[in-house]
Amino acid sequence: MHGLSTKRNYEWLKHLFLILTCIMLFYPLILMVQISFKDVGQVIYEFFQIKPPFHFENYTKAWNQVSPLIVNSLIMSGGTALLAVLLATMGGYAFGRLKFPGQEIMYWAIFIKILLPGVLNLIPAFVLAWKLGLLDSFWSVILFGAAGALPFWVFVLRMFIAQQPQELFDCAKIDGAGEVLTYRYLVLPLLKPMITLMAINVFIGTWNDYIWPLVTITTPEKRPLVVGLAYLASSFPNDYGPLTAGYAIACVPLALLFIFGMRFFVQGMTSGAIKM
C-alpha cells in the first residue's frame, strides 16, 4: 500500500508539473490573442480582462499590412526548402554510395562547416551576394538559405543512406538502373521520412530567419514576414490591438504546418534515430 501511495503521489506531481509547464508555454500566446481584440484604452486599463467590446477590425487592419509579407515568406521558405532537399538528397547519395576523387576530403570539409557559427559567414556571404547581383531579391534568401542548410543535412542523409543494405543498390544495378534512376526510384522513396523532416525544418528556419533578409532585402514590398513585423509598429504607433493581431496572423501558417505535418515530422525523427 505504501508503494502504491508513493506511486500515486509521483503521478500527481508529474501531472502538476506538466500542467504548469503548459500554462507557462501557452499563456503568452493566449495573452497576445486577447490583446489583439482590444483598443488602446482596453489595453491600458483592462489588460488582463476579457470582455466586450471585441474589436475584430484589428485583424482587418493587420491583414492588409501582413498579407503581402506572408506571400513573400511562403515563396522564400518554400523555395529554400525545395532547393535544399534536392541538393541534400543528391549530396547524401553521392557521399553515401558513390566513389569519386577527393570524396573524403570534401565530406570532412562539409562536416567541419557544421561546427562553425553561422554569424561568421554573414559578411563573406553578403559580399558574395553583392558581387553576384542578388541583393534585394528573393534569390539572396533562397540560395544562401539552402546553402546554409546543406552541411548538416548532407551529413545526416549520408549517414542514413550508408546504413541501407547494399543489396538494394545491387539489385537496382542488375535491373539496369543507372545512378539517376537509382536516385529517383530507390533513394528518394527510402529518404521520404527524412525528406519530410528536412523540408519542415528548413522551411521553419527560413521563415523565422531575421538577420539575413534584413541585411539583403531593402525594398519594403519584398520583405519577409518576420522582418516586416519589426516595422509593423510604425504603421500602428501606440495601437497594440492591430499590432498583436499581426503577430497572431503570423503564427497561423506555422501552426498549420505543424498540425498537418506533425505525423510526418515524427516519422522522420524516428527513422533518423533508428538508422543513425
Rank of each mutant, 00 (worst) to 15 (best):
M1W: 02
M1A: 03
M1G: 02
H2I: 05
G3N: 05
S5E: 11
T6Y: 10
E11C: 00
F17I: 15
M24A: 14
L31P: 00
Q34V: 09
F37R: 09
G41K: 14
V43G: 02
E46G: 14
Q49R: 15
P52N: 11
F54I: 03
H55Y: 14
F56V: 14
N58W: 03
N58Q: 05
Y59E: 09
K61A: 13
A62Y: 12
N64W: 10
Q65W: 13
Q65S: 14
S67V: 12
V71P: 03
N72V: 09
S77H: 08
G78H: 01
G79D: 05
G79M: 02
Y93F: 11
L98Y: 03
L98F: 05
K99H: 07
K99Y: 04
F100R: 05
P101K: 06
P101I: 04
G102A: 11
G102P: 07
I105G: 11
I105H: 11
F111Y: 13
I114K: 08
G118Q: 12
A125C: 03
A125F: 08
F126N: 05
F126A: 05
V127C: 11
W130G: 13
K131E: 08
K131P: 02
K131H: 06
L132R: 13
G133W: 10
L134W: 06
L134S: 03
L135G: 00
D136F: 05
L143Y: 01
G145F: 09
A146K: 04
G148Q: 08
G148F: 10
V154Q: 01
V154T: 03
V154D: 00
L157K: 04
R158D: 01
R158V: 04
M159F: 08
F160R: 09
A162W: 06
L168D: 10
F169D: 11
A172C: 13
A177T: 07
G178W: 09
V180Y: 14
Y185G: 05
Y185T: 06
L186I: 15
V187S: 15
V187I: 15
L191V: 08
K192C: 06
I204S: 03
T206Y: 00
W207T: 04
I211V: 14
P213K: 00
V215K: 11
T216P: 10
T219L: 01
E221L: 04
E221Q: 04
A233G: 06
S235W: 04
F236D: 03
G241A: 02
G241L: 01
T244M: 09
A248H: 01
I249P: 01
C251Y: 04
V252W: 12
P253M: 15
A255T: 07
L257N: 07
I259S: 07
I259Y: 12
F260E: 06
M262L: 04
M262Q: 03
V266D: 06
V266K: 04
G268T: 02
G272E: 07
I274P: 06
